[in-house]
Nucleic acid binder design. Structure first.
Lengths: 245, 245
DNA sequence: CGTGATATTATGGTATACCATCATATGGAA
DNA sequence: TTCCATATGATGGTATACCATAATATCACG
């Protein structure tokens, strides 16, 4: 359990131990719960369920082929993530989001992403810059397709690289979780033709600022990137009388 | 469920509806799960369990007097909150925190709290300012006692008022959750005599900046407040060889 | 025809049962 | 005495059973 294991008859150098570590069969005790969690989360993010739709436990059992114990633990997890709400006297439903919440999420993203981007501009090494460059190049090549999901994936890669290069795993976790809550908005936002053009353009602005180690410019471009998305999201959410989405 | 209910024979004014709303009996279907969740979370935050300590499900069942179903759902919730980790081949343990994670948490707090504080300085109404003033006055009165928990509660009140006055519930949720993960650090940090003096002083700086509607100064004071706490936390975490806490 | 009471169903909350695995203990053989 | 093998217990993963409640349907009565 700890380092006080009885010594083997031959000397184990640190090198040896490291090699043995790499030999270790990554025991993936993939539990049903983990699989069900990923499945259900992906389904909600992909929009397979509509916001506000009830998630009846026994129905999910049939659909996922697992027992209620598993489903309930998964639902608790997704509830804590904010993807599922539990309506009183009704049970779990897919979380609803209104413009008020969405605006808050964009605000938190601005706070965290501008920080990460500026930090990256200050400290990024050449490997990081190279990786960002590649992501943008791939995006340019594929942007002809106007495929919202492709752009979304590239955008995620882009920001993940930025966050993780600076060792900001916790902030990235938070951003990821927030993004999952506005996944519909993100897809709809990207489907706007404006956006499929300007999004990558904004990201290139950010990259350029990072490449020339200009934290302030990078942060400004990042803020603009998110504010632009927020404006489109608002136009999608607010006009309707009942801002249900 | 929505606004399309069949009309009653007599006109229901908005006024009437509002009165009826206030009549509604707040049905608090306090489930065992919710109670167990609060109990266990408080216990972990209060340090009743040590970091890394195993949380054996059946033992918790006895201690809380509920079944494993309840305990397991609670553990899933706390796991998602980051208060509990699940060690492979071992089960749930109280989450460990090292300086690397703590530093990240302080960074996120800086990003979110400076934003909230600046926003508050821009927009705070007189009621908010009055409330903040009262919190600080209470704190001054009670600070003689040097009671870390009292200061902690007041600090929480202070920031909660700031976040919620600007309608930043989501950011506040995030900060609360992060703070619970460094609860031990916060208590230890406050126990430092330096801190019990300078903490309130920093908060007064923030308040003064808010009162005179100076967002930049408020943000700067807030950043200083957190950086100071982070420095103390670092001195507590880093020196030890195995940064276990 | 409707109105109210009762039966039925759906559904979430809770408890329990069963199983596989891993750690530990126990005991026997060399 | 040492070491290996089997037994035993602890523990998490999973499934199922049971219950209370709320919504719905059914039916009898006026």
């Amino acid at each position: 359990m700890n380092g006080t294991m009885n010594e083997k008859p031959f000397a184990q150098t640190a090198e040896t131990v490291r090699n043995l570590e790499s030999l270790r069969i990554e025991t993936p005790p993939v539990t049903l719960r983990e699989m069900a969690l990923d499945r259900l989360r992906d389904a909600i993010i992909a929009g397979l369920f509509n916001p506000g739709q009830r998630l009846v436990e026994r129905t999910l059992c049939d659909q996922l082929g697992v027992s209620r114990s598993v489903i309930r633990e998964v639902l608790r997890h997704l509830e804590t993530e904010g993807l599922v709400e539990t309506a009183p006297k009704q049970g779990p439903i897919v979380a609803l989001i209104d413009w008020r919440q969405a605006r808050q999420i964009y605000d938190v993203r601005i706070a965290l992403e501008t920080t990460a981007v500026a930090d990256c501009a200050r400290n990024a090494d050449s490997r990081t810059k190279e990786k960002l460059k590649e992501i943008l190049q791939d995006l340019d090549r594929n942007s002809r397709k106007n495929d919202a999901l492709t752009i979304l994936a590239a955008t995620t890669d882009f920001y993940e690289t930025i966050f993780l290069s600076g060792g900001h795993e916790i902030a990235w976790d938070i951003v990821k979780r927030l993004n999952s809550r506005i996944s519909r908005l993100r897809v709809m936002t990207l489907s706007t033709t404006n956006r499929t053009v300007s999004g990558p353009a904004r990201m290139r602005e950010i990259f350029n600022a990072i490449e020339r180690n200009d934290p302030d410019a990078a942060a400004a471009a990042c803020r603009a990137h998110i504010e632009e998305a927020a404006r489109i999201a608002q136009s999608l959410l607010v006009p309707v009388d009942q801002p249900k989405l």
